[in-house]
């Protein structure tokens, strides 16, 4: 069996050769070096927080908080994982702490709970995978997809965002969330099933 899936190959994270030096300088208290690290990772962290929080104002607060926390604690970063994994963990924890404080639950009651995936719902939408409208250039599909992601219960949403949008391998996601690999896979499957379900509703013929 071959290793040919180009999307996965593209998603493999290649470590930046400059990063160790920037990390060393940051640990020594050089804010300019840390700013360079921010530039390398800010888009991914901001996008994750924006998708997770659902609004730009909260995302901005969380973004600042996460990077300031990383700066404050960078001397404790032991490089047991990559710097980006460590940052993701801080960002996710910052968000979860904030939500716990606010006692806001984002779990949607509309989401069907899939019973361990034993049953596949028959939606009779047909195979829409070749439909030319199944593209992100189709604004309606893009909006549906984003809405479906927002509807996901938090633990599924986090895994889906980290995996299918941020491109982290499952092993990294396991480290970020501190859960088992099996949990990561299960959550990812359920999240994907939910999204597929929502897109199938769109493509269902009347």
């Amino acid at each position: 069996m071959k290793l040919v899936n180009p999307t996965v190959a593209e998603r493999i994270q290649i470590r930046d050769p400059l990063e160790p030096e920037l990390l060393r300088k940051s640990r020594e208290g050089d804010p300019k070096a840390f700013e360079e690290l921010i530039k390398k990772h800010e888009a991914k962290i901001y996008s994750l927080l924006l998708s997770m929080s659902g609004n730009a104002a909260d995302a901005a607060d969380l973004f600042q908080e996460a990077f300031i926390s990383a700066w404050r604690n960078i001397r404790s970063f032991k490089e047991n994982s990559s710097f980006s994994t460590w940052l993701y963990r801080i960002a996710v924890n910052t968000l979860l702490m904030k939500k716990r404080k606010k006692k806001v639950s984002t779990v949607s009651l509309d989401v069907p709970v899939l019973s361990n995936g034993e049953e596949i719902k028959r939606d009779f939408a047909g195979d829409w995978s070749d439909n030319p409208l199944a593209s992100l250039e189709n604004k309606e599909v893009k909006d549906r997809l984003n809405a479906a992601i927002q509807q996901l219960p938090e633990k599924y949403k986090t895994v889906l965002l980290l995996s299918d949008i941020q491109g982290l391998p499952n092993e990294e996601i396991r480290k970020v969330l501190g859960v088992s690999l099996a949990s990561v896979k299960t959550r990812l499957h359920r999240a994907r099933l939910h999204l597929r379900e929502k897109l199938s509703e769109y493509f269902k013929k009347p």
Binding site: R192, L193, R196, L199
Partner: peptide, 12 residues
Amino acid sequence: TVRKTVELCHGI
């Protein structure tokens, strides 16, 4: 359709 869903997510 699951595969296409994942592909669409990769495109975001």
